[in-house]
């Protein structure tokens, strides 16, 4: 094979290098063994996790760490459930103490039914976290101006939503995702909205550095099989992006030569 086909194609965030371009969430699974099996099948090296109170009435209950080892996977603590900048900062300070890790996922959501990123609160929390020494991967709206501002503030990765979280609708506004990618000097990841493998492929074909998937794997009929599909989908999309697709043209163009035909 050509050297460039076999060459490493890692991506780098905040100085850390990853071969897998699929990041997976650890939420919504029916149990911890399924979580572990699906994550293994996904080939992901980074997983998102939430921070919650320990159940003091059942301290011996199995914990995520027993099934998804932080020694093997890079934990990316999130701020899910935080609706203010203050809550987000407090949560991630605890996560840093629990994991000893500065790389975090910031998400500050607005209320249902959209759960759309609350950008003013996201800016406020990003500023506070960066000041406190965190390396912030930030979930945001698919707004090129907001994305650029977050990058200029010092966020280490920009993660626009493809569609509302958990909707499974795929990338709804590819033009804006592409504009964000073209303007960015830090990694851009589609986070939220992926429904099936094709959606992950499509996001990667747009030129995303990686894709973050949770519900589409965790809630599939067979999460382990879907995790494999997502892995293949992300790889296919990345290869297609690197290969360079043919232009879309509004006319037919025959695949077989029209010369040398028998008479």
């Amino acid at each position: 094979m050509d050297a460039h086909v076999t060459a490493k194609d890692d991506w780098v965030v905040a100085g850390r290098s990853f071969a897998s371009r699929l990041i997976v969430g650890t939420g919504k699974y029916k149990d911890l063994p399924t979580t572990a099996a699906a994550i293994e099948a996904s080939g992901a090296e980074m997983v998102t996790v939430a921070v919650r109170r320990v159940n003091l009435s059942d301290p011996k209950a199995p914990m995520l760490q027993d099934y998804v080892s932080p020694a093997r996977y890079t934990y990316l603590p999130n701020t899910a459930g935080c609706f203010t900048a203050d809550d987000a900062v407090r949560t991630l300070r605890l996560a840093r103490e629990a994991g000893g890790w500065n790389l975090v996922k910031l998400e500050v959501l607005g209320p249902p039914p959209t759960l759309y990123p609350d950008m003013p609160a996201t800016f406020e929390a990003a500023a506070a976290l960066i000041k406190d020494g965190f390396e912030v991967m930030v979930y945001c709206s698919d707004d090129p101006i907001a994305a650029k501002r977050l990058e200029e503030m010092g966020c280490v990765a920009i993660m626009p939503l493809g569609a509302p979280i958990g909707s499974g609708l795929g990338v709804q506004n590819p033009l804006m995702i592409q504009m964000i990618i073209q303007n960015a000097r830090v990694p851009v990841l589609v986070d939220a909205g992926v429904g099936t493998a094709y959606d992950a492929t499509f996001a990667m074909e747009l030129g995303c550095d990686a894709v973050l998937v949770n519900s589409a794997i965790a809630l599939a009929d067979d999460p382990v099989l879907m995790a494999q599909a997502m892995k293949a989908g992300v790889e296919a999309g990345r290869l297609a992006f690197r290969a360079g697709r043919i232009p879309r043209i509004g006319a037919a163009s025959a695949s077989s030569p029209m010369t040398g035909l028998i008479r």
Partner: peptide, 10 residues
Amino acid sequence: LEIVHFIGGG
């Protein structure tokens, strides 16, 4: 006191 740990999340 708040005592927390990591759980599954997206």
